[in-house]
């Protein structure tokens, strides 16, 4: 169930748009910000609020890479694998993270601490190889930088 505070936040969001449904992406971002993922219940709540079919909300959630249907780790590495990053060693970085955390891309450690995702161009190719660490961009990646971030989380 959506709390009354959150409903107020949604009212503010939808007021910006000519059609309520246009607020779907920002509304899903807001839910994920609170819960860390988008559950079937959240999909149903948002659908009801916006007056659109649940299946439509689910379709959108599954279409966009940034919406998660499973809980991600506290420390989520999203490493870019596209050309500029690949030319500067992204493959090694992805392999390194995978090895020390024993993770394949798309997986989360059993303790819920770490997730690894492999993503396409983050629009920060000048700092290749680059990743998003949760929401922050970390560029010119080295194994040392990865080690430090892992140490901080543990």
């Amino acid at each position: 169930m959506l709390t009354s505070d959150f409903l107020q936040e949604l009212d503010k969001l939808t007021a910006k748009y000519e059609k309520k449904q246009a607020a779907l992406l920002p509304a899903l971002h807001a839910i994920q910000e609170k819960q860390g993922l988008i559950t079937p219940q959240a999909e149903a709540d948002i659908a009801q609020y916006l007056g659109i079919p649940v299946v439509h909300v689910h379709e959108v959630v599954s279409f966009y890479h940034l919406f998660h249907q499973t809980q991600k780790g506290k420390c989520h590495f999203s490493v870019c694998q596209t050309t500029s990053c690949a030319l500067r060693g992204a493959e090694d970085i992805i392999e390194y993270i995978g090895k020390i955390l024993d993770l394949k891309p798309g997986e989360t450690t059993a303790d819920g601490k770490f997730s690894l995702s492999v993503v396409e161009c983050l629009g920060a190719c000048e700092m290749a190889p680059v990743m998003q660490h949760n929401k922050d961009y970390v560029g010119c990646l080295t194994k040392e930088k990865i080690n430090e971030l892992i140490k901080k989380t543990v």
């Binding site: 910006k16 748009y17 971002h29 966009y64 890479h65 940034l66």
Partner: peptide, 9 residues
């Protein structure tokens, strides 16, 4: 209005 995308080329 500033509107966020959600990751899709």
């Amino acid at each position: 209005v500033v509107h966020p995308g959600a990751g899709a080329y």
